[in-house]
């Protein structure tokens, strides 16, 4: 008889616990989802400043999520890539925006979610680390300690995390299919503007040179 009493007590306790948890779950779930999507939209707009519209592009072989971002006048200003990689503590998800140049440059990069050690690997979210990526081309994306061409300082005490992100961003930018896509967009873009550009040739040469000088 005693065993029934024990089973009954434990079941009742678990039932009450389950009910109260489901109540809290339904109360907090929409807030959590809203938080995440708010953050993602905010991050996207921080990465590509003029972009107001994001359109998903489907690739056959790519396992990451690519979006085309358009500004107010409908021009494509960059590609936004969301990728999930293995960090040190678990999955790490980042968003990177790249330009549609002949040699794509990074516009900006942000970390969406991570499971790195607080105080060490968790520093990947700081601008100290991420600002190093801005306007780099693919071949510069190595850690300084891994390659001479590398321009990225790893985070002290979190080399594995830094290396994972740097290498993964480089692989994304060197991806064949993505590169072909960028080229095709460029061709479309060039053929569309070539008619208009003929008149502006003389004007455009001067600012282009100055901007090149600055970046060099």
């Amino acid at each position: 008889m005693k065993i029934f009493k024990l089973v009954l007590t434990l079941s009742v306790v678990c039932l009450i616990s389950g009910l109260s948890l489901s109540y809290f779950y339904t109360r907090t779930k929409p807030v959590i989802i809203r938080n995440n999507s708010d953050r993602e939209i905010k991050l996207k707009q921080e990465i590509i400043k003029d972009a107001i519209e994001f359109k998903k592009i489907d690739f056959v072989s790519l396992n990451y999520y690519v979006e085309e971002s358009k500004n107010a006048s409908g021009d494509v200003v960059g590609l936004l890539i969301k990728n999930r990689i293995k960090g040190y503590g678990g999955d790490l998800e980042y968003l990177v925006g790249i330009t549609l140049d002949q040699e794509p440059k990074i516009i900006n990069i942000k970390i969406l979610s991570h499971r790195e050690t607080p105080g060490l690997g968790a520093k990947v979210t700081t601008s100290d680390f991420l600002s190093q990526f801005v306007s780099r081309i693919a071949t510069e994306l190595y850690l300084k300690k891994d390659s001479k061409e590398g321009k990225i300082d790893s985070i002290t005490g979190a080399t594995i995390t830094s290396r994972a992100i740097t290498n993964s961003v480089r692989e994304v930018m060197q991806n064949k299919e993505l590169y072909d896509y960028i080229k095709s967009v460029q061709k479309k873009f060039e053929s569309a503007v070539s008619v208009v550009e003929e008149k502006k040739v003389i004007k455009k040469v001067v600012p282009e040179n100055t901007s090149d000088n600055i970046s060099q």
Partner: peptide
């Protein structure tokens, strides 16, 4: 069971209202 229930409640609440802290405590 009691402790786990309260912990999960704290976890949900933190994720909803203090997302930054919840992210760094993991």
């Amino acid at each position: 069971v009691i402790i786990a229930t309260f912990t999960t409640i704290v976890d949900y609440t933190m994720k909803a209202y203090l997302p930054k802290l919840s992210e760094s405590l993991g």
